[in-house]
Design a protein around this nucleic acid. Structure first.
Lengths: 106, 106
DNA sequence: CATGTATATGCGTATAGATGTATATATTGG
DNA sequence: CCAATATATACATCTATACGCATATACATG
């Protein structure tokens, strides 16, 4: 796993952009209006998100429509699930190992 | 969703530490031996990972045993799945909307 | 072609973050 | 209590990066 996707999502402004794009395609100016940073900053953030594979761009006249790339989220989900599967396997083999992951019961 | 967990995983050294801890608890020096950074750096990285809720610490004599916290991965997985569910809902409603997420077929 | 609109980028600056060194704080054993 | 071991932290430094401003580029329209 590369850190690039985490780095891209680690900036508050970029995460806000990603959350805003849940609803579909957005032009750059649409995003600028929802944020409190300059248009140049939004463009730079979008470039970083694109380089990380999180967004894609489609030209539409003089505008550029950005949208999320599900593949990026698939990769992230697969990575996270690798850890879950690991723990589940351990729990299957050692019931008592629950103590490893839960707070002690009073 | 807060950026803290992404920020914690965005550093290559910290991600290596997390990956190394897949196999269970590790003392600080165990991790230092596997990395090419100084012990002070490892301690700092572990603090950041702990503050992000990714690792927990358990004293064992003069050593501190660190391990991963599955809850952090659960939260991350839930966040990612929020996006997947969103797209799946859209795909259910609009079959043609496949174009939104896949490269155009030749 | 000229003008307006939308987006990207070079530049300077300010701030955050990663690192090593040295030192402080536990904890153990004698 | 003293020495050794394990870990954390203060400090200085170096690098990365986020930001706004100004400007460049691309497209549309008259």
């Amino acid at each position: 796993m590369d850190t690039q996707i985490f780095h891209a999502l680690a900036d508050p402004a970029r995460l806000r952009i990603v959350e805003a794009m849940r609803t579909g395609e957005h032009a750059v100016n649409d995003i600028v209006e929802r944020m409190d940073i300059h248009q140049s900053g939004v463009s730079r953030h979008l470039r970083i998100l694109a380089e990380a594979g999180i967004v894609q761009m489609r030209p539409d006249g003089q505008r550029r429509l950005y949208s999320l790339r599900p593949e990026a989220f698939d990769r992230l989900e697969a990575w996270v699930q690798g850890y879950r599967r690991h723990w589940e396997a351990r729990l299957d083999r050692f019931g008592a190992a629950l103590e490893t992951h839960k707070d002690k019961k009073p």
